[in-house]
């Protein structure tokens, strides 16, 4: 992903900052600037998620794109945050067999990918066992 495209949402990615619609009380991560439920009636504000939640479902990526090839096998999951929002993120664990549906997890700041030895390094949020 290009540098400007990544930087635009950098604070959101680093700090798990999403949005909340004050009209209907729904939390959004990834952040949304328009509440799909309330649309023009929605009042959107920033919201920093607590970063804790549980695994809804997961997989182990064994065939990846070139950029992620060196990291395989790695776990990716859909995580439901305690605020009720769901997101997709990698899960770090010493043993990929220990991950299960319903496992409690918390967010952590990590390197996501690197473009070769001298290219840009992308950081963001991953999850570890709580």
């Amino acid at each position: 992903m290009s540098v400007p495209r990544f930087w635009r949402k950098q604070t959101n990615r680093y700090n798990l900052i999403g949005t909340k619609c004050e009209t209907c009380g729904t939390y959004y991560f990834p952040p949304r600037s328009l509440c799909p439920k309330c649309r023009r009636e929605g009042k959107i504000v920033d919201y920093k998620f607590k970063g804790t939640g549980k695994i809804v479902t997961f997989s182990v990526v064994r065939t990846a794109s070139d950029k992620f090839d060196l990291q395989t096998p790695f776990v990716v999951a859909i995580i439901e945050l305690d605020e009720g929002t769901r997101l997709t993120a990698p899960v770090i664990c010493s043993d990929i067999n220990e991950v299960y549906i319903g496992m409690r997890v918390k967010s952590t700041f990590r390197k996501i990918s690197a473009d070769g030895d001298s290219g840009i390094i992308v950081y963001g949020t991953k999850f570890i066992r709580e």
Binding site: A64, Q71, V76, A89, P90
Partner: peptide
Amino acid sequence: REWEGMYGVT
């Protein structure tokens, strides 16, 4: 791309 693919999800 920004919220699924970016994390290496295939």
